[in-house]
Amino acid sequence: MSTEDKKFTRRQILRWVGGGLLFNATGTVLYDPIGRLIRPVNDRLGEAMLSQRLIPEIDLGDHVDLGKLIVNSFDGTPKIDLANFRLQVTGQVNKPLNLSMEDIRRLPYESQITQHVCVEGWAAIVQWGGVKLSDILQVAGVKSTARYVYFTSADGYYESWDLASAQHPQTLLAYQKNDAPLPPENGAPLRLASPIKLGYKLSKWVTAVTVTDKLMTKRGYWEDQGYDWFASI
């Protein structure tokens, strides 16, 4: 063997890169079975990390500005008749609720400056004002069999959460953003806001909260297409 044979030749390098591209092509075909294997594992991890402790708020002191949210919705901004708007709270609760915005504004006001993180990779620091979801759930009286919370939106978007995340003290139904009334494209009159979940979990234009003991086949608009369900951040 000559010494040249022993070094990496151009041909060998091309073979490695070719192998790499073939790996990508094959792996892309297999994205779904891989996801079915790994998502339950990572969901479990998210569940294990969750606690009811507060995520420290972002300090607006020095260089941090309130960021701009990129508006994502799967079907535009729905038209909502604010005068007749009602939030339904039903399912595994002792006292189903049918709340107007007036009723909701009468509940204790919560404000927090937290980071909103989108699955796409961008993030924005936002001031959210509204009511703790846990306060609403407390008024309704969650039954001991309850384990999940479903959110239905005016545009047909749907989401499901674990009860512990829904009861986290920083999970809000927000009606205010960046010290102003929540704009329609960001989910007015009422949307979810929380520093513990990715943006696609934070339903806009929420009209119904349904407490359940089981997770149904339809778990969320994006989850049903292959995003992770727990979506801890």
Partner: peptide, 25 residues
């Protein structure tokens, strides 16, 4: 979103959800 995108041959996963499956595996 207006920025330069990476050509498809070098990508793994096919779409955002598929890529997240691979990345977090």
């Amino acid at each position: 979103r207006q920025g330069w995108h990476i050509p498809g041959a070098f990508l793994l996963g096919g779409w955002l959800g598929g890529a997240r499956n691979w990345h977090f595996t």
